[in-house]
Amino acid sequence: MRAEALALDLDGTLVDSAPDIAAALAHALRAEHLDARFDLPTVRGWVGDGPDALIRRALAARGVTDPHPTLLRRLRSHFDKATLAAPLAHGTVFEGIEAVMGELARSLPLVVVTNKPTPLARAVLASAGLLPHCAAVMGADRPELRKPAPAMLLAACELCGVLPSRLLMVGDGPADVRAAAAAGCLMALAGWGYGGVEEPGPAVWRLQVPRQLLALLPPRAPTASH
Rank of each mutant, 00 (worst) to 15 (best):
M1I: 10
E4C: 08
A5I: 00
L6E: 00
L6I: 08
A7I: 07
A7W: 02
D9G: 10
L10P: 10
G12V: 08
L14C: 02
V15P: 11
D20C: 06
A26F: 09
L29M: 12
A31K: 13
A31W: 06
A36K: 11
F38I: 10
W46Y: 01
V47K: 03
D52N: 13
D52Q: 13
L54P: 09
R56Q: 14
R56W: 06
L59Q: 04
R62I: 06
T65F: 10
P69C: 00
P69R: 00
T70D: 12
R73A: 15
L84R: 11
L84N: 04
A85R: 13
G91R: 04
F94E: 11
I97M: 07
E98W: 03
A99R: 15
M101H: 06
G102H: 08
G102K: 10
L104S: 06
R106P: 01
P109G: 00
V111A: 08
T114K: 08
N115D: 10
L120W: 01
A121E: 08
A126N: 12
C134P: 12
C134Y: 07
V137A: 05
M138R: 14
A140N: 11
D141S: 03
R146V: 14
A155H: 10
C157A: 07
L163M: 12
P164R: 02
G171F: 06
D172N: 10
P174S: 15
A175Q: 14
D176E: 06
D176C: 03
G184F: 04
G184S: 05
C185S: 15
M187V: 09
M187K: 03
A188F: 04
G191P: 02
G191L: 02
G193N: 05
Y194A: 05
G196D: 06
E198N: 11
E198T: 15
E198D: 14
E199K: 13
E199W: 07
A203Q: 15
A203P: 07
A203Y: 08
V204W: 07
L207S: 03
L207P: 02
V209C: 12
R211G: 12
P218S: 03
P218F: 00
T223S: 13
S225W: 12
S225F: 11
